[in-house]
Design a binder for these strands. Structure first.
Length: 325
DNA sequence: TTGTGTTTTATTGCCTCC
DNA sequence: GGAGGCAATAAAACACAA
């Protein structure tokens, strides 16, 4: 017995035999649900108490099986019948109509006030306790369904995020490979031009070369190209973009696919770099010719020039967005 | 018919609220 | 302290394949 709760389930089936047989045929027939639900004053289930009804619970046609499985032969003796009703109450299912009635009531409100419980019990011919239990179990089923729905939504969201993440990871690896390729080309070109070692003092006087522009032409044409478009800070920004290529502002033709990789609104945890920050700095400082990349403090970002290669964003902004590689 | 898995009805114990 | 809600669980009822 639940703490303090008083419920005698057997009492609900404590009807006399005469009542049982009176109700057996007359009250177990189905009636249109809507009329039952709307009538209110008509206790349509009154007398069809599930505890005492022998009607078949499936469809109410009574042709398949009796309500009480253990009492399905009319030729049982009186002793056997008496024995049955001295046994504790067995579980029995509500009729289809009763369940539909309860379902409609549940749709209106899944909580059960005492008055409504009493009225429902009266209308359905059930014990108020049975109505309360039905609502309780129904709420539990509803909650389970809701959890399943929530899980499906979360699963779909996770799958989408995972796909985005995988795409970005792939993009990142491609960009890393591209960076290596470009630096190799720069080194090679510097060796060929005998320009490998240049001091900081003459870097502003030397002709500047844009590695990205150089990449856009064939290998054989590199020596013929005179690059005049970009100032030092522009090249610096190119460098910055190469190493911070996940910047949301990065829109050149090569990397624009970053912006196409699914919903960019998703936020990812920055992945741990394969290299430490020191290693990355060393890589930047050792592999790339120093004259191409001036110190940040030497660059004026206050008024970016038209057609600037830094896309109008100072390098510091890129640092905000950058992931470590 | 029987074994097995699922659904439904009901109980129990704990918790919160008034 | 009683009423009622909820989670966990038992057990009957049911569905279905072999």
């Amino acid at each position: 017995m639940a703490g303090g709760r008083v419920f005698n389930s057997a009492s609900s089936g404590g009807s006399s035999l005469s009542v049982l047989f009176q109700n057996q045929k007359a009250s177990c027939a189905s009636e249109p649900l809507d009329s039952l639900f709307l009538s209110g004053s008509s206790p349509s289930f009154l007398g069809s108490r599930s505890m005492v009804c022998f009607e078949d619970v499936r469809g109410g046609n009574g042709s398949n099986r009796p309500f009480f499985r253990s009492y399905d032969h009319e030729d049982n003796g009186d002793d056997e019948l008496e024995d049955y009703f001295h046994q504790p109450e067995k579980k029995r299912r509500l009729t289809v109509d009763q369940v539909q009635f309860l379902e409609k009531s549940f749709e209106v409100d899944n909580k059960l006030e005492p008055e409504r419980k009493t009225q429902l019990a009266k209308d359905l011919g059930l014990q108020p306790r049975q109505v309360a239990i039905w609502f309780q179990n129904r709420r539990a089923r509803w909650k389970t369904k809701q959890l399943e729905k929530d899980y499906e939504v979360l699963q779909a969201s996770y799958d989408s995020l995972k796909a985005d993440y995988d795409n970005l990871l792939k993009e990142k690896n491609e960009l890393k490979a591209e960076v290596v390729l470009l630096t190799d080309k720069l080194l090679l070109r510097d060796k060929e031009s005998g320009n490998f070692e240049l001091s900081d003092t003459n870097k502003s006087e030397e002709p500047l070369e844009n590695p990205v522009a150089a990449e856009s032409i064939s290998e054989g044409e590199v020596s013929k190209v005179s690059i005049v478009g970009c100032k030092q800070e522009e090249i610096s920004s190119v460098k910055s973009d190469i190493f911070d290529s996940d910047s949301p502002h990065y829109t050149d033709g090569v990397h624009s696919s970053l912006l196409d990789a699914g919903d960019s609104s998703h936020v990812f945890e920055p992945e741990q770099s394969d290299l430490s920050q020191d290693e990355e700095d060393n890589l930047n400082n050792s592999l790339l010719p120093p004259y191409i990349f001036p110190k940040l403090e030497d660059v004026d970002y206050s008024d970016p020039p038209e057609n600037s290669c830094n896309f109008g964003f100072p390098v510091e902004d890129h640092a905000f967005w950058s992931w470590s590689y």
